[in-house]
Design a protein around this nucleic acid. Structure first.
Length: 572
RNA sequence: GCCCGGGUGGUGUAGCCCGGUCAAACAUGCGGGCCUUUCGAGCCCGCGCCCCGGGUUCAAAUCCCGGCCCGGGCACCA
């Protein structure tokens, strides 16, 4: 009985590992799959050792035969094994139809790949559970991180471009009265107070764990001061509403944290100077997450401690805190993400705008021809890990390439053109080349060779052009290089057949006769390299097309103006 | 200083809560081959990892203790 079981696992183990079973692995499987045997482990181990020895003495053929005899199912199971378990793990405490998630950016800059992590996870889970996804603009700091009107639009556009279905949009600056109501409630409950200490003085007391003089004053006094905050009797910096917490909390920052403060001339892009009392992030966010029925929050681990603060409010009101998932920061190798760096670079004229191809904003990635699905896939692959991750551009490129490869039509682009004069072929030759090798139905482009006129080849291929070398001009013919000089290359026609080039392993290069001017912007870290060149004249490209310049890379057409083309490099 | 989090192939992640089906998976990368009018793509084969030390256990990537290293937070910012 038990022996037979051991035989089975020992044979499987031997079969899958070159004929030699490992006794430890066999014990593991026997006990792992048959928990009722575990108490008898001491008796089973010697038995396993004995049987493994017998199994290992057999030839692989005998092992397989024996395995087929006692456990033929193994060979069937093997075939149907290997189920992919791609995608995101299930969410704790999530019920179909009841999940509500939100993404709460400050519209003070463009949306970038780093923010996209929280956004995509939130949206993805909302869809996975047939729930609701809310976009809420956290624009409650008119001073330090000032929102700008354009970014409200851009963030929405970018999310939609990513394929989001946004169920609701809320704007914190529209909801100030709501926050005021809750603040007043907390004051009346004795859970919040108006503190008029100087910031440094408060900090000193706080660090010692001592209550400030205003904390324990009666509710009527607090309400009176709250009124003075609202009606302007207190100026900026003179009063702040604090939430009462444990004054001995190990983290001093948690102790009686500030909830609302005064800004004298907010000049807020949406509400102007209508409101002078503004909630701080933790207060507004805590109230809104409850008010809007958010069940699951995804945010960066830098917010992990804010949860401690916010929970005080939830406890005072008897609310249930949403499930939180904190992920690490996401960055991408060689791409600038930081909002402040980006802003500075734009002001200094270093970047051409928020969609400069060197940047990691969603708009910049889009401009380079990165598809939204690729970004989504990347984020899902990175998942929920709490530690920070830096993904390589290669990784994004690999995902993106798989997506655009079938759609991108092919063209010849010659960077830094060099003329090549060819002797020995006196007829016009028109090469017809499919727009996409796998999709002949899309049609062909025509490239013409005219005797007496040079063809242009790329300086990038210069090392192939050595006197005596042979190269094939792709889809045209093979030539022998005769001479290379400042003025260009002299070559002689050799043969038309591709087979000849193939057999001799001659390298293939691209060429054009009369191309149209084309420049490609190639972002390389901090640099933006502009490659000037010629695009085959028959190329009918339109803005937004993602195409492949053969042997150069995938690019997105950024502009077509007066016959001149500008493209932006995505990746090889 | 105080408070969190994390260390799995070259890189990025899964597995850890609940020890055995992990002789560790997936993607990317690298090497080789096949195919191919892109030294591209695709297909096939291969390479390569549980931070260190101790402990518990028949059995540890997984649990416990200690160490090392790396992030993040500690604003009247979000």
């Amino acid at each position: 009985m038990v022996e037979e079981l051991i035989w089975k696992y020992a044979l499987i183990n031997a079969y899958t590992h070159k004929g030699k079973a490992n006794p430890k692995a066999v014990i593991g499987k026997v006990l792992g799959e048959n928990p009722e045997l575990r108490p008898k482990a001491k008796e089973i181990i010697p038995l396993v050792n004995e049987i493994v020895e017998k199994v290992n003495a057999l030839s692989p053929e005998e092992q397989e035969a024996k395995l087929r005899e006692i456990y033929p199912e193994f060979f069937e199971e093997k075939a149907e094994k290997r189920e992919e378990k791609k995608g995101l793990p299930p969410l704790p405490k999530a019920e179909k139809g009841k999940v509500v998630t939100r993404f709460a950016p400050n519209p003070d800059g463009a949306f970038h790949l780093g923010n996209a992590r929280a956004a995509i996870l939130s949206h993805e889970y909302a869809r996975m559970y047939n729930g609701k996804f809310i976009l809420r603009f956290d624009d409650t700091d008119p001073k330090v991180k000032r929102p700008e009107p354009i970014f409200y639009e851009w963030i929405k556009e970018d999310l939609e471009w990513l394929g989001f279905k946004i169920d609701e949009v809320h704007i914190a600056s529209d909801r100030l009265e709501v926050y005021y109501d809750y603040a007043e409630k907390l004051i009346k409950m004795g859970k919040a107070y108006v503190c008029t200490c100087k910031p440094e003085e408060f900090r000193e007391l706080r660090d010692k764990g001592i209550a400030c003089p205003h904390r324990d004053e009666p509710v009527e006094v607090q309400l009176e001061r709250w009124r003075k905050m609202l009606n302007g009797e207190y100026r900026e910096g003179e009063a702040v509403v604090r939430i009462k917490t444990d004054l001995k909390h190990p983290n001093p920052a948690v102790r009686d944290w500030p909830a609302l403060r005064i800004i004298d001339n907010p000049n807020h892009p949406r509400t102007g100077n209508k409101y002078r009392v503004w909630p701080l992030y933790n207060f507004a966010s805590a109230i809104d997450d409850h008010e809007l029925g958010v069940t699951h929050i995804f945010r960066g681990q830098e917010h992990a401690e804010n949860e401690t603060k916010q929970r005080y409010i939830y406890d005072y009101f008897g609310w249930e805190y949403p499930v939180t998932v904190h992920h690490g920061r996401l960055s991408i190798e060689g791409v600038i993400l930081s909002k402040s760096k980006t802003r500075k670079g734009i002001e200094e004229g270093k970047y051409i705008g928020w969609d400069d191809p060197r940047l990691g904003t969603i708009r910049a990635l889009r401009r380079r021809g990165i598809r939204p699905e690729a970004i989504r896939e990347l984020i899902i692959e990175v998942g929920l890990k709490r530690s920070d991750t830096t993904v390589s551009w290669d990784n994004l490129a690999a995902i993106n390439r798989r997506i655009i490869e079938p759609i991108a039509n092919r063209y010849f682009f010659v960077a830094d053109p060099v003329p090549m004069w060819i002797e020995g072929y006196d007829e016009e030759f028109v090469a017809e080349i499919p727009l996409h090798p796998d999709h002949p139905e899309r049609g062909v482009r025509k490239l013409k060779f005219v005797p007496g006129k040079p063809v242009y080849v790329s300086k990038d291929d210069m090392e192939l052009f050595k006197p005596g070398n042979f190269v094939r001009l792709k889809d045209l013919f093979n030539v022998e290089i005769l001479e290379v000089s400042e003025e260009g290359i002299k070559a002689r026609f050799h043969s038309v057949d591709y087979e000849i080039a193939r057999k001799n392993r001659w390298r293939m290069v691209h060429w054009v006769t009369d191309g149209k001017p084309c420049e490609v912007w190639v972002p390389e870290g901090e640099e933006l390299i502009i490659r000037e060149g010629l695009l085959e004249s028959d190329a009918d490209v339109k803005v937004d097309d993602v195409v492949q310049f053969e042997r150069f890379g995938f690019v997105r057409i950024d502009e077509v103006k007066d016959g001149k083309v500008r493209a932006i490099f995505a990746h090889k």
